[in-house]
């Protein structure tokens, strides 16, 4: 795959996340909706630093950990990313994504 086909993923800053036992809960600060991630989604989520491409994440965090064919792992990962991005939990870009400041830093009551 050429460099310009890569996709980079980064966690949205408009969320709150907390691991509870084996599960990860994410709450969208925009929609107040609560999500629970499965193991695969958690692996992608944790590695989504904006600097590592999705292909590298799948290779290192999915194929390196689970007995899965790379093409299948990539297809599954793309579905997970599309769903998370659709809910505003992940940002996706063909370029590396610079770390963003917290969008919720204003002082409230």
């Amino acid at each position: 795959m050429s460099e310009n086909q890569k996709r980079y993923v980064a966690r949205s800053t408009a969320i709150a996340a907390r691991a509870l036992g084996d599960e990860l809960m994410i709450m969208s600060a925009i929609s107040s909706t609560l999500f629970t991630l499965n193991e695969t989604a958690m692996a992608i989520w944790e590695a989504a630093d904006g600097a590592t491409s999705l292909e590298e994440i799948v290779s290192a965090r999915i194929c390196g950990r689970y007995d899965v064919v790379p093409e299948v792992a990539m297809k599954d990962a793309e579905e997970v990313v599309a769903e998370l991005a659709g809910h505003g939990l992940l940002l996706v870009s063909p370029e590396p994504i610079a770390p963003a400041g917290s969008p919720v830093s204003k002082e409230l009551a």
């Binding site: 969320i15 709150a16 599960e23 969208s28 600060a29 609560l34 919720v104």
Partner: peptide, 25 residues
């Protein structure tokens, strides 16, 4: 998760500001 979800469904929550959503979560 079920406990958090069950609690959040019942918390009074008027403001939609992201910081407050995060705090309540």
């Amino acid at each position: 998760v079920d406990a958090v979800r069950g609690l959040l469904e019942n918390i009074l929550f008027f403001a939609k500001e992201p910081e407050l959503v995060t705090i309540v979560f």
